[in-house]
Design a protein around this nucleic acid. Structure first.
Length: 1082
RNA sequence: GGGCCCGUAGCUCAGCUGGUUAGAGCGCUACUCUGAUAAAGUAGAGGUCGGAAGUUCGAGUCUUCCCGGGCCCA
């Protein structure tokens, strides 16, 4: 090694920046949760959050984040904390790198979810109750709820260590947000994309509103058991024959218009004999050829035809007598429909275009009449006979009886399937014919796809998911027949039918012909906005707003415009749009926020709203099961924060692969605390304890630029190694974080900490412990301090609390240029000149050989305290042989041997004993086995072992043995204990000479004294008076190693065969005799 | 029916563009070591990398098909 001058770039801030401040010892025991609270106080006292938010205000490079609004309807759970940790971590990382950023948090507050909670609070069960309570009061209650939970979530987020501009969060319920959506909707109308349509929609009878496609798919399906009704449709032109149909929604039978078959499939006519009420009955029934097993009783197949033969047949419907059927009953016939399958039911499908989404489409294609049976509360309208005025949920039994009476009932059996339910109240949905407002997607769809492909999706399969959604989705239904939400700015003339979209508050004021004064001063919500009337530009009539409110994803989708002053402050908007990145959980957001954000951005500006989309999966409990309040396995944020600690929580999140579900709980938290956080803390505690003891200060650091820069030979190989590793770590973590591979970054840090703890510190302990303040000791302090201060900044984004504590004690006041919070510090930059790949590989080799050496020692049954003469190693590569002298010291220290010898290629560490494998050789060779046994004994065991293990045949005199026909046993060569793995071998000589034995005894005694010091409650720095009573070889050893004993145990005085009066004492029975140790603080 | 993801040790998962003998943590047992460590080390196991075929000098990794699980759409 040449003389290299050390001066790490990240410490090169100028001369004389250090102070003579001493370190304060840190206890190895720590209460992380108390620490977190004290750090929260420190941040407050020093105004750290504010200074953090504005530290890059003047920066030329920027990295704008656009926050997806969190629903302000409930307190935050640990699953929210997961997503918010990602946001905070990447924001902190970029902030340390010096990018200007946006720190605006968002709250989502309009929509049915809030209404449902307020209804629960008030005990409302229907829309009528809301209206009699007063829409204005109800809306105010919704606003208040959102306000309350916004504050609650803000407080929780602060506890999480989430640094945001909390006083400046945006609200989707704000006037600005709503009016910006008006602008968007007007643009849609101008482009001809906005229309009012009739459709059959999934409908919640309790909430009295339709649900959009997006809403159903999230949590919208449940396994439900329904009655599967089988019934007969008698055919008009084929006397005595019936179609057998099946339905799980008997309430739709009254709206039946047609029956459908698949023209490709086979259908059969059967003569079916079965018993009803002890009476035998025979009927002719048509059904799918693959569905015969649904029949009761006996059957005989009479005829088989393709479905196309059935098309056009007319039948009598089950409810032809009710008035509402008057327009349909003569039209009942069989249709062809390719979607009819053979997997369930009878192969013949009942079609009710007014009560099913697919039915509606089929009806339109075939020009069928539509019968719509239900009102908006799920109650039958008039014209449906005995069903009139009855709620849909109660009619199954009566329909059942009625069909029996009409003799068209065949049978009923339970049927379990996935059925849509209301995602907020759990009510089973029905399908209803309604008028709703839509944004047409035909023109937008290709543009949305193009924008989606331009974005960088993390994980990459997100793009495919979004594209798949865009390909399959229908038009966007944006209306909702509710109260609390965006007031759709659509005024539709009752007289001429013309509708107009108002694009802003100013425009409305100009157009208003009445009601403006009643509205002015209120937010643009119901009921106040509904006062405002305009004049129809078509016919001049006075026009009211439609009563509908908007889909909540409009609210969240507009934020890339509304939060940036798109309407009034273009330059600000231009500065921050489009976002550099956004982040949400992916399972729901492809069709929700990602979708609406892209749609609105493309519609208004023709470009993607963000460059990068970082998304993540779902949280489960630690057993992998879904978390549910009712199941009792949900974890509240506050509880987790105070029990597990926020740093631990955040590290659990950080080290996890975001693309897969996270099994979260106290078990995994505990693992992180024990395996990562405590070892990390212990290094910190170790450093401060000894630095305080020795009075070492940063002024003395070899890694600061000072007059006479120290040459590298002050630093050991070990120091240079850990400094190299530190710079490698900086490189890696930076690269991973820039590539959004947060879990790689966290795992790299974990590996580094493990190496720092279990190799660097472990092997350096003696350097700190020895009493003289020499160059080697100063080098050790310098290296370790450098590592810790660098590491502190690398972990700051992930664990803001513990990193802050470490920064305060390692840097603040020691380095004059250091900011008073780690979160105001710069992200470290790697100094490539300090990275030594060769040294890295060499040390890896040392770690591997040490592991083998420990294994060998453990087989020798000799304690590591017993010094041994030498370690013999075999390695595989030339560079490894050359590296051995470099790592010799590390190995001999770690394994307590006097020297390391390279025996690569020399053999001899192992001897092999080969025996015949009798089970296979016996039957094969019979009596010749004796010869084989003899020949094997004479042969070269090592050579046979080699052949056998490389799968080659073995020539043994006249015999040729297969590789599996010998058994190889390894023995260590005489006088050695051996361990081998993957071509590497380590052996220790097991011979203990009298000299080695004496040294071993001395070390044993030191060990006993050290333990006794602990027992006596002495601190590390206390000096003692020591007395030992012993005889024979123990006494001899102590005489030889008196100086060693005194140094190691900090003894001011030592006397052999003496008992320290009034001290602590212990007697031990050693191999060489009894020994009594007594000591007392000097 | 279409799209996406997943299948590696008892459990939870790593394994990046194909490359020596597939790893970690947890869990179990035994032993060792310890004046930083509530730790650590060593050993014992435990795997036909879901299955089959193919491409290749070489496949956990690429291709195809199949099986199983999950999510989404229809």
């Amino acid at each position: 090694m040449g003389r290299v001058f050390f001066c790490p770039a990240n410490m090169r801030k100028g001369s004389n920046v250090t102070t003579g401040k001493k370190f304060e010892a840190v206890d190895s025991k720590v209460d992380f949760i108390a620490l977190e609270h004290s750090i929260l106080g420190l941040w407050k006292d020093r105004d750290v959050v504010n200074r953090y938010l504005h530290r890059n205000d003047g920066a030329s490079k920027k990295f704008p984040f656009m926050d997806g609004p969190i629903t302000a309807n409930n307190p935050m759970g640990v699953h929210h904390a997961w997503g918010r940790s990602y946001k905070d971590i990447f924001l902190r990382f970029r902030n340390m790198q010096g990018y200007a950023q946006r720190f605006q948090n968002g709250f989502d507050g309009q929509g049915l979810w809030v209404e449902v909670e307020v209804e629960k609070e008030k005990g409302f069960k229907s829309k009528r109750e809301i209206e009699s309570y007063g829409i204005d009061r109800f809306v105010e209650d919704c606003k208040a709820r959102v306000q309350m939970f916004s504050e609650r979530i803000s407080e929780q987020s602060k506890r999480l260590g989430y640094f945001m501009d909390w006083d400046n969060s945006y609200q989707t319920m704000s006037d600005e947000n709503n009016y910006t959506i008006w602008l968007f909707l007007k643009r849609c109308a101008d482009n001809g994309w906005l229309y009012e349509g009739e459709d059959v929609m999934p409908w919640c009878p309790r909430c009295g509103t339709g649900l959009s496609q997006q809403e159903i798919v999230t949590e919208g399906y449940q396994e439900i058991v329904h009655p599967g009704f089988f019934l007969k449709f008698p055919l008009l032109e084929r006397e005595g024959e019936s179609l057998l149909v099946w339905t799980t929604t008997p309430w739709t039978l009254v709206a039946n218009v047609a029956a459908a078959v698949n023209k490709e499939n086979d259908y059969v006519l059967v003569e079916n004999t079965y018993t009803v009420n002890r009476e035998e009955r025979t009927e002719k029934i048509w059904l799918g050829a693959q569905r015969l097993h649904v029949l009761k009783g006996e059957h005989t197949v009479m005829e088989t035809v393709k479905g196309s033969e059935l098309a056009g047949w007319r039948y009598r419907g089950p409810f032809d007598e009710v008035p509402a059927q008057s327009k349909a009953k003569d039209a009942h016939r069989v249709l062809e429909w390719e979607d009819v399958g053979e997997e369930e039911g009878t192969g013949i499908v009942h079609i009710a275009p007014g009560a099913g989404a697919e039915d509606f489409r089929l009806g339109k294609e075939n020009g069928l009449p539509i019968i719509a049976p239900l009102d908006d509360s799920g109650v039958y309208m008039t014209g449906f006979g005995f069903l009139d005025g009855r709620p849909v949920s109660e009619v199954n039994d009566d329909i059942f009886d009625d069909l029996k009476r009409k003799n068209v009932f065949y049978k009923v059996e339970k049927y379990k399937h996935r059925y849509p339910i209301c995602w907020r109240c759990g009510t089973e949905l029905v399908f209803r014919l309604v008028n709703e407002w839509f944004i047409s997607m035909d023109e937008l769809r290709p543009r949305l796809m193009e924008a989606t492909r331009k974005m960088n999706w993390i994980p990459p399969f997100g793009e495919a998911r979004e594209i798949d959604w865009l390909r399959n989705m229908g038009d966007w239904m944006i209306s909702k027949k509710r109260y609390w939400g965006l007031a759709l700015p659509i005024w539709k003339c009752a007289d001429c039918g013309k509708f107009e979209v108002i694009g802003s508050d100013d425009e409305l004021k100009v157009r208003a012909i009445e009601g403006w004064d009643a509205f002015a001063g209120n937010s643009p919500h119901r009921p106040w906005i509904d006062n405002v009337k305009i004049q129809c530009s078509g016919c001049g009539s006075t026009v009211s707003r439609i009563p509908d409110v908007g889909n909540a994803w409009l609210d969240a989708g507009i934020v890339s415009f509304s939060t940036l002053g798109y309407r009034h402050d273009r330059s600000n908007w231009e500065k921050w749009y489009p976002a550099k990145w956004i982040s949400e959980s992916f399972p729901g957001q492809f069709r929700n926020w990602f979708y609406s954000l892209i749609t609105m951005s493309v519609a208004l500006e023709g470009q993607p709203p963000a460059e990068n989309v970082f998304s993540y999966a779902l949280m489960r409990d630690e057993k992998g099961e879904e978390m549910h309040k009712s199941k009792g396995n949900a974890i509240w944020f506050e509880e987790a924060a105070e029990k597990m600690g926020v740093d631990v929580m955040r590290w659990v999140y950080s080290r996890h692969n975001p693309a897969s579900n996270l099994n979260f709980g106290y078990g995994p938290g505990d693992d992180v605390r024990r395996q990562f956080l405590i070892p990390l803390w212990n290094i910190f505690s170790f450093f401060t304890t000894y630095a305080a003891l020795d009075g070492w200060t940063v002024e003395q650091s070899l890694l600061n630029q000072k007059a006479g820069t120290p040459p590298s030979d002050e630093l050991t190989e070990l120091d240079r190694w850990i400094i190299s590793e530190t710079n490698l770590l900086i490189e890696r973590v930076t690269e991973y974080m820039e590539g959004w591979r947060i879990e790689y970054a966290a795992q790299a840090i974990e590996q580094y900490v493990d190496g720092l703890s279990n190799w660097y510190v472990r092997l350096s302990r003696r350097r700190f412990w020895k009493s003289e303040n020499d160059g080697d000791k100063i080098a050790a302090y310098s290296a370790l301090h450098y590592c810790l201060t660098t590491l502190t900044r690398l972990i700051a984004p992930f664990m803001p609390f513990v990193s802050e504590q470490m920064w305060q004690q390692l840097t603040v006041g020691h380095d004059k240029n250091a900011p008073d919070s780690v979160h105001l510090a710069d992200w470290p930059e790697a100094d490539k000149s300090l990275i030594d790949e060769q040294l890295s590989r060499q040390t890896q080799l040392a770690i591997k050989l040490a592991s083998l050496g420990r294994s060998a020692r453990s087989q020798s049954r000799l304690k590591v305290r017993q010094p041994l003469a030498e370690l013999l190693v075999e390695v595989r590569h030339d560079w490894e042989r050359e590296a051995l002298p470099v790592i010799e010291r590390q190995l001999s220290d770690e394994l307590n041997v006097k020297g390391v010898r390279d025996v690569t290629g020399k053999g001899g560490l192992l001897s092999y004993e080969v025996k015949p494998e009798l089970r296979s050789l016996g039957p094969k060779y019979g009596k010749q086995l004796g010869d084989i046994r003899r020949l094997l004994g004479e042969a070269d065991g090592a050579e046979i072992a080699r052949l056998s293990e490389s799968g080659q045949q073995i020539q043994l005199g006249e015999f040729t043995l297969e590789p599996g026909e010998v058994l190889v046993e390894r023995r260590a060569a005489e006088g050695y204990a051996v361990a081998t793995d993957g071509g590497y071998t380590a052996a220790v000589s097991t011979e203990v000479t009298p000299e080695l034995r004496a040294e071993g005894i001395a070390r044993e005694i030191v060990h006993i004294v050290q333990n006794l010091r602990k027992t006596a409650g002495l601190e590390i720095s206390h000096r003692i008076n020591l007395g030992i009573e012993a005889e024979g070889e123990i006494a001899d050893a102590l005489r030889t190693y008196t100086m060693y004993l005194i140094q190691e145990t900090l003894a001011s005085s030592f006397q052999l065969n003496y008992r320290v009066a009034g001290g602590t004492e212990e007697t031990h029975d050693l191999d060489g005799g009894k020994v009594t140790v007594s000591l007392r603080r000097a």
